[in-house]
């Protein structure tokens, strides 16, 4: 079974980049355009891992983490946040909210796959 990824990002460019990399690597890719849609889609997609941007309209990345962890739907699902710069306080805040890890933009294929590997054990 393919590993299911739910990516939440308001940037079409980033969504396309993620889709290209992940689909090529054999992941099953789902995406949402903002935090609210991501949280709404979550039960239907039932992903193995969530990748979320931080700065988004409607509901930001911290909100996504809090809602997913708080819901108890699957409080253990790995959640990776996308951050543009490696601002330590952003990571610390994301982790405080319950993020599993982070992916620093711009990401290359290898580091993206490596991050997913560390939180899902899967390379695809």
């Amino acid at each position: 079974m393919k590993t299911k990824v739910l990516a939440i990002d308001d940037s079409r460019t980033i969504r396309n980049l993620l889709a290209a990399t992940l689909e090529e690597a054999g992941f099953e890719y789902h995406c949402a355009v903002d935090g609210r849609e991501g949280v709404d889609m979550y039960p239907d997609v039932d992903p193995d891992v969530v990748i979320t941007d931080i700065n988004m309209p409607n509901l930001d990345g911290f909100g996504v983490i809090e809602e997913l962890r708080g819901h108890g739907i699957n409080s253990k699902v790995p959640i990776l946040v996308l951050t543009t710069e490696s601002a330590p306080e952003l990571k610390a805040r994301a982790r405080g909210a319950g993020a599993t890890g982070w992916i620093t933009k711009p990401f290359d294929d290898a580091s993206l796959i490596f991050a997913l590997k560390r939180v899902t054990g899967a390379a695809a």
Partner: peptide
């Protein structure tokens, strides 16, 4: 609480 799994 962060969803990190030793196994992975």
């Amino acid at each position: 609480g962060t969803g990190n799994e030793p196994f992975f």
